[in-house]
């Protein structure tokens, strides 16, 4: 655990659902403060990759090293991973029976054993950052999708993660809600957060990404800086994907 380790390293990672190979020989390196965007067709394994990183899924081959420490089945190891890696889901997954404030303080109070008062202050701080501090007492069901997703980002940030994972954070949103969420993510990137985003927002990718990763059928097909990926994709599959996705924007 020193600063020379990459934040995240995946070596030959494989994952199967029964006979179906969801990930095959995935190799990735992510440095501190690096911003990576993963794109690719639906079902190509994007979600599976990032879910393996915080161990919502278990990989079956290869190694995943988080800050130099390999992910294992050991519960303490898993709790550490969950503490250090934040995740934002496509469908927000806020806890509907808890107020916004309680949604945010639950993790710090339970996992970090933080006193309630301190957790509350922390939560208000992050709600301020995602610009919904005045709604702390509301319930998720009373908010718009865009607001809920910003709460979900704040909830993940409350654990003070070293690495943030985003799984299509804007795909479930109405168009007018998207920019509010992207703004928060851009700001977060500006603050030096290490992050992996699965997204089809190519404008965001161009602006923020240090590295573009293109996946297809469980494999990483292309890795490179956005300038190269968007202007001269090397593979036919990436070219096809880009032509399809950009024709809509």
């Amino acid at each position: 655990m020193n600063d020379t380790n990459p934040m995240l390293e995946m070596r030959g990672v494989g994952k199967w659902y029964g006979d179906f190979c969801a990930l095959y020989d995935v190799n990735l390196k992510l440095q501190r403060a690096e911003r990576m965007v993963i794109c690719g067709p639906s079902g190509s394994g994007k979600s599976t990759v990032i879910r393996c990183v915080n161990r919502l899924e278990e990989h079956q081959a290869g190694q995943i090293l988080l800050d130099g420490v390999e992910l294992t089945e050991d519960t303490r190891n898993i709790e550490r991973v969950r503490r250090e890696v934040g995740m934002v889901f496509q469908h927000f997954n806020l806890f509907p029976h808890l107020s916004i404030l309680d949604n945010l303080t639950l993790g710090p109070i339970r996992n970090l054993k933080m006193p309630k008062k301190e957790a509350r202050e922390l939560a208000l701080h992050y709600l301020e950052r995602v610009r919904i501090a005045e709604q702390a007492g509301k319930y998720p069901g009373e908010m718009s999708g865009g607001q809920q997703q910003r709460v979900a980002i704040a909830r993940a940030l409350c654990m003070k993660p070293k690495l943030m994972l985003f799984d299509e954070p804007t795909s479930a949103l109405d168009p007018e809600m998207i920019s509010g969420v992207l703004d928060v993510m851009v700001e977060l990137a500006g603050d030096g957060m290490t992050m992996i985003c699965v997204t089809h927002e190519m404008g965001f990718a161009r602006e923020v990404a240090d590295t573009m990763v293109f996946m297809d059928r469980g494999e990483i097909v292309e890795v490179g800086p956005p300038s190269e990926f968007f202007n001269n994709p090397t593979s036919d599959r990436a070219r096809l994907f880009l032509s399809q996705i950009l024709s809509h924007h």
Binding site: G86, F89, F95, R110, N111, A152, A156
Partner: peptide, 28 residues
């Protein structure tokens, strides 16, 4: 399933996921 995943993703133990997230919703 998303409720389990979100709760696990903020580092709750299985016991806490059940007590703080799943059971309160299930009871209702």
């Amino acid at each position: 399933k998303g409720q389990w995943e979100a709760a696990r993703a903020i580092g709750l133990s299985r016991f806490n996921v059940l007590r703080d997230v799943i059971l309160p919703q299930a009871i209702r």
